[in-house]
Amino acid sequence: MLTVEERKWIEENDILDRYVFGRLTEEEAARFQFLLDRDPSFLEEMEFNTAIIAAIRQKGRLDMKQRLQEALKDESGMELHVSQHTSETRRTLPLILKIAAALIALVGGSVITYQLFFNKPVEVPLAEKEINVKSTPEQTDTPKEEKKQPIVPDQSKKVAAKKSTSKQKSEEKPMIAATPPENLMQKHNQKFRVESYMMPKPNEVKATLVNTDLKTEQETIILFKNPTDLVAVNIKETHSEDNGKLLWFFVLYDNQILNVYVDNSKYLALFKNAKLTASASSLHIETKDASYVVDLKSADKFRKAVIKP
């Protein structure tokens, strides 16, 4: 059992919530992991709570879906604003209230949420969707300096050994990745490629997309005002002890996922023609030539993408 002191530490520091979103410091993560390993009942309790938190996030995502739908209906532009709703909720409410609110929401008949998190496997619906991008001979656009690359292609597809049962359990948690609106999942045959891009701010990508069928170009601005909406985690290994970051996101345009990007703030890795599967703990990216697993949970595992089974 956890001591009063330990529970106080968890509540006061918002440990549970920050754990879900990969925002614990190394020290906090180590202490938290120690508690999980020591106390199986706490592990169970934590998993239940993380499911609820994920449900809260999902509600935010449903709001986001609505906004995406509206944005995409607007022919004048493709400005996709991802809301801060979920994180604000997370920051302003104490954990217990959040849990209570989530329980009410769940019991109150949130069938969609229920199905998402209790009746489905860990994969996100969009995960199975293949990106329709005109591919280049080399599918993965990774940086030159291999020693610094955080994302390492897995050509051999060997199995990454799992170190502990708690880690195994953590990978079975509900997913928190974004899902596109239903109308975006409709069949559509237009193909796009990214012609150029820049990241003027950490959470903003401006990309010029080319419709390869119609030969038209469109400037697309994707604003990730709240990077946690797309799963952001801090990492230290990539280039700096202070400001290493890992963001992953996909460029969604019309009904297509164009590309999957993984950004560690030093390099932006671009995965074209890929399948994306996201869970709370990892990001699975499969291209034609290689598979990647980007672990989203522990800083220790962010050195490189882990080989996928």
């Binding site: 280049t136 012609e195 150029s196 891009y197 990241m199 030093k266 390099y267 932006l268």
Partner: peptide, 17 residues
Amino acid sequence: IHDLFDRIPAKVIMAEK
């Protein structure tokens, strides 16, 4: 030199173009 592109927003143009 790559770090310069972190410090100053750079327009990255894909080779295809």
